[in-house]
Amino acid sequence: MPDRDFSVQWNSAVRQRFGDTGPELVLLDLDGTLIDSVPDLAAAVDTMLAALGREPAGQQQVSHWIGNGADMLIRRALSCGDEDAANALTASELQTPRQLFDTAYLSTLHQATGVFPGVSDWLERVTTPKILITNKPRLFTVPLIDSLGWTGHFLRLICGDDFSEKKPSPMPLFKACEFANVTPSNALMIGDSRHDIGAAKAAAICSAAVTYGYNHGDDIALSHPDYLLNSLFDLMEPKNA
């Protein structure tokens, strides 16, 4: 539902940092920040595991494995979350599971995915240029954003397989700023995980973290973002202020 208790003016803390007009560019994570994609991802993971004769992982486990792209999600699922075992899997060992996952996820894409409260309204009302930066592959990102009717909200979609590095590397953030012709110090990164905040810090970009996301089950405050948000509208000035 629209959050009409907030204006489209940035709050005093944001204006103090960026000036009265706020940041020149907003960089936004997708999963765990704008959308709750766990139901669809968990369904795809469990379909993959079932085809491999494995036990299902379930939504709670999958929510802790999200954030580093599809390949790492599959690695964690195959190794029951053991990071060392996940990283030790070879490309050939991933080939069939990845094909199974891709087929399953494309067939369930957006069936259960939900938009977090206030997000659609915020994207519509806040006119600052925005670029989406996700570790999700382009194969999944483009149809998902299109199905949500959000394509027009973003200058560009930067996906996990667009460049040689993805978050927590700062490369995608630098590429976004370069594309928008904005210096990193005039940009704001909003995400839900330590990878988003780490990438922002590495790029010397101001960061805001939502508290309702995934972050592998850890408290996002431990990553020390510049702002902690219960809603994207926490960045905006209340109407009665």
Score class of each variant (00 low, 15 high):
residue 1 M to R: 11
residue 1 M to I: 03
residue 2 P to H: 08
residue 6 F to P: 00
residue 6 F to K: 00
residue 7 S to C: 04
residue 9 Q to I: 14
residue 9 Q to H: 11
residue 10 W to H: 07
residue 12 S to T: 11
residue 13 A to T: 10
residue 14 V to L: 12
residue 14 V to M: 07
residue 15 R to Y: 05
residue 19 G to D: 14
residue 20 D to N: 15
residue 21 T to V: 07
residue 22 G to W: 07
residue 26 V to S: 03
residue 29 D to F: 00
residue 31 D to G: 00
residue 31 D to V: 00
residue 32 G to L: 09
residue 34 L to S: 02
residue 36 D to W: 07
residue 37 S to C: 09
residue 38 V to T: 01
residue 40 D to P: 00
residue 41 L to C: 03
residue 41 L to Y: 11
residue 42 A to I: 00
residue 44 A to S: 14
residue 45 V to E: 09
residue 46 D to C: 04
residue 48 M to R: 13
residue 51 A to V: 06
residue 53 G to M: 06
residue 53 G to V: 05
residue 54 R to K: 15
residue 58 G to V: 00
residue 60 Q to I: 08
residue 60 Q to Y: 02
residue 60 Q to W: 03
residue 60 Q to D: 04
residue 60 Q to A: 15
residue 61 Q to S: 10
residue 62 V to Q: 07
residue 62 V to T: 08
residue 63 S to C: 10
residue 64 H to F: 12
residue 64 H to M: 08
residue 66 I to V: 15
residue 66 I to F: 06
residue 67 G to S: 10
residue 69 G to I: 05
residue 70 A to G: 01
residue 74 I to N: 00
residue 74 I to Y: 07
residue 75 R to F: 10
residue 75 R to Y: 02
residue 78 L to F: 01
residue 79 S to N: 04
residue 79 S to L: 06
residue 84 D to W: 04
residue 88 A to N: 14
residue 89 L to M: 12
residue 91 A to I: 06
residue 93 E to V: 05
residue 94 L to C: 08
residue 95 Q to K: 15
residue 98 R to E: 07
residue 98 R to Y: 15
residue 98 R to Q: 13
residue 100 L to C: 03
residue 101 F to I: 12
residue 101 F to Y: 15
residue 103 T to M: 06
residue 107 S to V: 01
residue 107 S to M: 03
residue 112 A to G: 01
residue 112 A to L: 05
residue 112 A to D: 13
residue 116 F to M: 05
residue 121 D to I: 05
residue 122 W to T: 11
residue 123 L to I: 11
residue 127 T to C: 05
residue 128 T to S: 04
residue 130 K to I: 07
residue 130 K to G: 09
residue 131 I to K: 03
residue 133 I to A: 02
residue 134 T to E: 11
residue 136 K to R: 15
residue 137 P to D: 12
residue 140 F to C: 09
residue 140 F to A: 06
residue 140 F to N: 14
residue 142 V to P: 01
residue 144 L to C: 12
residue 145 I to V: 15
residue 145 I to L: 14
residue 148 L to H: 07
residue 150 W to S: 04
residue 150 W to F: 15
residue 151 T to N: 00
residue 152 G to N: 09
residue 153 H to A: 08
residue 156 R to L: 12
residue 162 D to V: 09
residue 163 F to M: 05
residue 164 S to Y: 08
residue 167 K to L: 12
residue 168 P to W: 09
residue 168 P to Q: 12
residue 169 S to R: 08
residue 170 P to T: 04
residue 176 A to V: 00
residue 177 C to Y: 01
residue 178 E to P: 02
residue 179 F to C: 02
residue 179 F to G: 05
residue 180 A to W: 08
residue 181 N to S: 11
residue 184 P to A: 01
residue 185 S to C: 02
residue 186 N to I: 02
residue 187 A to S: 14
residue 189 M to E: 12
residue 191 G to V: 10
residue 193 S to W: 09
residue 195 H to G: 00
residue 195 H to V: 10
residue 195 H to F: 15
residue 198 G to N: 12
residue 198 G to I: 13
residue 199 A to G: 01
residue 200 A to T: 09
residue 202 A to C: 03
residue 205 I to W: 11
residue 209 A to H: 11
residue 210 V to N: 03
residue 210 V to M: 09
residue 212 Y to P: 00
residue 213 G to L: 13
residue 214 Y to N: 09
residue 215 N to G: 01
residue 215 N to W: 04
residue 216 H to P: 00
residue 216 H to S: 15
residue 217 G to I: 01
residue 218 D to M: 10
residue 231 S to H: 14
residue 232 L to R: 02
residue 234 D to W: 12
residue 239 K to P: 02
residue 239 K to E: 13
residue 241 A to W: 14
residue 241 A to R: 02
